[in-house]
Amino acid sequence: MNNMQIGLLIGYEGELEDAFPEDIFNAGIVVEEKIVLYNLNDIPCSFAMLMGIIYCVNLEYPTAMKYSFEFLQKVVMKIKPDQASAKVHRLRNKLQKNNF
Results as ranks from 00 to 15, higher is better:
68 S>E: 14
33 E>H: 05
56 C>A: 07
88 V>F: 02
42 D>C: 11
45 C>F: 12
95 L>R: 08
39 N>W: 05
68 S>G: 09
82 D>S: 15
4 M>L: 12
58 N>S: 10
23 D>W: 06
62 P>Y: 10
78 K>D: 15
21 P>E: 05
29 I>Q: 03
28 G>F: 08
73 Q>Y: 05
49 M>W: 07
73 Q>R: 13
99 N>Y: 14
63 T>V: 06
7 G>Y: 11
13 E>H: 14
33 E>T: 14
61 Y>W: 08
100 F>N: 09
87 K>I: 14
23 D>Y: 13
57 V>L: 02
74 K>C: 11
89 H>W: 04
35 I>T: 07
50 L>N: 01
43 I>S: 02
83 Q>Y: 14
97 K>F: 12
52 G>Y: 00
26 N>I: 00
95 L>H: 07
4 M>W: 08
84 A>T: 13
98 N>R: 07
31 V>A: 03
42 D>S: 13
14 G>T: 06
35 I>A: 03
86 A>Q: 10
66 K>N: 06
36 V>P: 13
77 M>A: 12
9 L>V: 13
54 I>S: 06
15 E>I: 06
43 I>F: 09
67 Y>L: 14
11 G>M: 02
89 H>S: 03
48 A>I: 12
100 F>Y: 15
21 P>S: 07
15 E>R: 04
11 G>Y: 05
84 A>Y: 06
89 H>R: 08
9 L>W: 11
99 N>T: 12
2 N>W: 11
85 S>L: 04
73 Q>M: 09
81 P>R: 06
35 I>S: 02
41 N>T: 15
27 A>I: 07
81 P>V: 01
91 L>S: 11
56 C>T: 13
7 G>N: 07
6 I>R: 01
32 E>Q: 13
89 H>D: 01
75 V>A: 05
82 D>I: 00
27 A>H: 03
66 K>V: 09
40 L>M: 04
37 L>W: 12
72 L>H: 10
67 Y>K: 14
